[in-house]
Write a protein that binds this DNA or RNA. Structure first.
Lengths: 199, 199
DNA sequence: ACCCAAATTGGAACGTGTTCCTATTATGGA
DNA sequence: TCCATAATAGGAACACGTTCCAATTTGGGT
């Protein structure tokens, strides 16, 4: 109970509380989607979610915690809706498929992506729990794309490669979000990096 | 004259102005080194550099511009003091050498690294000029490490590989700065990534 | 040496993230 | 049902990045 972590859905007792948490995250994503990082203002979130400002801070101890948690829920949703349909002969093709689909999804809502990505990158050590959860989701989906048939879990090497690819993807996403890399350059660089790493 | 970019040393007319700029960057690095990103407060920088707050903003239009520019000067200094002494037989060894040395340098001053890295990652499109400069310095030093004897400039492929390696390094640095990756993990992951990319 | 434009100073003011406090409301055990 | 405790509401207050302004200083051209 360190007041340092976001409250997860599981440790919330009553239905009303889970409902509050859901409203907060929904409001966050709506605001982010409309105006990006800057539009996610804590007062605005609390009003739209119909909670007091103090309550918002009890659920999420900072704007960054809030946004990274929102990113986590988005990733969970994405992971649950696409887990099994890998296309492609080679690991490189499948991984590229997964990442291009994710990239396209995110580029369809640039404001939301900007908000979530910048929060992720700006997060400090106090957000490591929330960050770690997102990192795991990403690495998992990549190792599965590398080796979909494997039930025994990925090898150390596969995890290492997946991590590197995830890192590259994140860097490229940051470049795109911050306007220094075009969508097309992201695709090309991703292609280059993946084929270098999975050959 | 869009007031959107940091003033570079070259476009500063008088000696007094160059001196002011130097004082500002020195103050920035000192404060960052002592207390990290949060300690670089614009009022504190202006006081320590003995410039008015408004002047500070005339030289650097935001805290992020200021920190990314400071990062640029650090990179320049590092690049000028180490440019020619590559050790190692293979490109992978030489690149690893360069990045491990840089990593060690940065890990010796964690607060400074935290401040500069987070600024770099948080920067938006308005900082692209400053960002681009840093990116060039990094990519250059990597392509030189890959192929030191080459006077004709790197190939497209070499640049692509260098960029990917730079991205991975930045992501790892962010992980370390935010406390989710240990220094040892950074070394190991770097080793893995480089040997995957340069083989 | 003088004048004008630009640069600098010093500080007030504003916006937004964060903290804090008191009054009120919900919750769970006796 | 009643009480003790926690949770929430409502909003003031504070910190720091940023903007703005009036007064002063600096520097270059004549």
């Amino acid at each position: 109970m360190t007041a340092m972590n976001s409250l997860t859905n599981e440790e919330l007792g009553s239905t009303a509380q889970r409902e509050r948490r859901r409203r907060i995250l929904t409001a966050t994503i709506e605001l982010a989607s409309q105006g990006g990082f800057d539009a996610v203002q804590m007062r605005a979130v609390s009003e739209r979610a119909d909670v007091a400002l103090g309550t918002l801070y009890r659920y999420f101890p900072s704007k960054i915690h809030l946004l990274v948690s929102a990113l986590g829920t988005q990733f969970e949703r994405a992971a649950s809706t696409q887990s099994t349909d890998f296309v492609g002969e080679t690991p490189a093709d499948r991984v590229l498929g997964v990442l291009l689909r994710n990239t396209k999804l995110m580029q369809r809502d640039p404001n939301l992506t900007e908000a979530l990505t910048r929060a992720f990158m700006f997060a400090d050590a106090s957000v490591s729990a929330e960050i770690h959860q997102v990192g795991m989701l990403l690495t998992d989906s990549l190792t599965k794309a590398i080796d979909p048939a494997n039930d025994a879990g990925p090898t150390e090497e596969q995890v290492a490669v997946a991590r590197v690819i995830g890192d590259v993807w994140l860097s490229l996403l940051v470049g795109w979000v911050t306007g220094r890399t075009s969508a097309d350059e992201v695709r090309k660089s991703l292609d280059v990096a993946i084929h270098l790493l999975l050959r």
